[in-house]
């Protein structure tokens, strides 16, 4: 099976200081949902935004390669990544509060977001309304005419997912799609993703620090620690038999996996951290 997305030895730093991503390898295949987990600051977002060339100012790719459908998008022309955006690749961002423009209606933005798609504005608007209905937004015609602040956080995240699905991408990247939501909303969005997977044939890359999201949604998972991918495998395998000590420590901290009520929430201690760096997977 050839990979839809294939990242090899990717290294990225910020203004020569922080090496946010170090020699990372990652593959996403068609029809597959891949999780990228790791604690906050481990370099997940940096890696994800490098795929479409949306790295923040100051970030540089020092080495490695990103290939989409077997063609390198980082070694050739600069536009190679730009033409993927909103066409082959769509993104869902973390914070639905700020992901939409506050002075434009949702419908207006969903039309603009289809700028790579053929069709008249009116057709795109109709498609947007239909997609809002598809992601479970009640009264979609009214909502298309609403401004972001008139919708709840969960509703906006649904709209963001609708935006991504509208361009019918081969790869959907969601960076912390549930992190800004409360638990009920999170469960609903996870449910929505599961449901959407039934008829979406492309690949999905879900970036999260929440292991529950990965367990619910993903087939395979990559674990990142301090800019490195320390472990990779099928979700079931990794959850049952973590090989890297960091993964074990991470799993031990997940409240959902505690079998007994602990007096305190387990954390990764500094002493443990010192061992991760030398550790190689068993």
């Amino acid at each position: 099976m050839t990979a839809l997305l294939s990242i090899r030895d990717l290294t990225i730093d910020y203004a020569g200081h922080v090496q946010a991503v170090r020699g990372a390898n990652l593959d996403v295949h068609l029809g597959e949902a891949v999780g990228l987990v790791g604690e906050s600051g481990s370099g997940k977002s940096t890696l994800a935004s490098a795929i479409t060339g949306l790295l923040p100012i100051g970030a540089r790719i020092l080495g490695g390669d990103i290939a989409f459908k077997n063609e390198s998008v980082t070694s050739g022309r600069k536009q190679a990544q730009q033409i993927l955006r909103g066409d082959e690749i769509a993104m869902v961002f973390q914070d639905p509060m700020t992901a939409f423009n506050p002075v434009l209606t949702i419908g207006d933005q969903l039309v603009d977001f289809q700028s790579r798609m053929p069709g008249k504005a009116r057709e795109k608007y109709a498609r947007a309304v239909a997609m809002l209905a598809r992601v479970g937004i009640p009264d979609p015609a009214l909502r298309a005419n609403s401004y972001p602040h008139e919708m709840s956080g969960g509703m906006r995240q649904r709209a963001a997912i609708a935006a991504a699905l509208l361009v019918n991408p081969s790869l959907l990247i969601a960076d912390e799609p549930t992190t800004a939501l409360d638990v009920t909303m999170e469960a609903q969005i996870i449910h929505l993703f599961r449901e959407l997977r039934q008829d979406y044939g492309g690949g999905i890359l879900i970036v999260t620090h929440h292991l529950g999201v990965v367990a619910e949604l993903c087939d395979r998972v990559y674990v990142m620690y301090r800019g490195e991918v320390v472990e990779e495998g099928a979700v079931d395998d990794i959850f049952h038999e973590p090989r890297h000590p960091y993964t074990r420590a991470l799993l031990a901290c997940d409240p959902a996996r505690l079998h007994e009520r602990a007096g305190y929430l387990p954390v990764i201690t500094d002493a443990e951290r010192a061992t991760f760096m030398q550790a190689r997977p068993r």
Partner: peptide
């Protein structure tokens, strides 16, 4: 962040500047 969203969807830069 919403400017980044617009960019991520390939909205042309002139439109991002003038409209967004």
């Amino acid at each position: 962040p919403h400017i980044r969203t617009a960019r991520a969807f390939g909205v042309p830069e002139w439109k991002i500047v003038t409209k967004y």
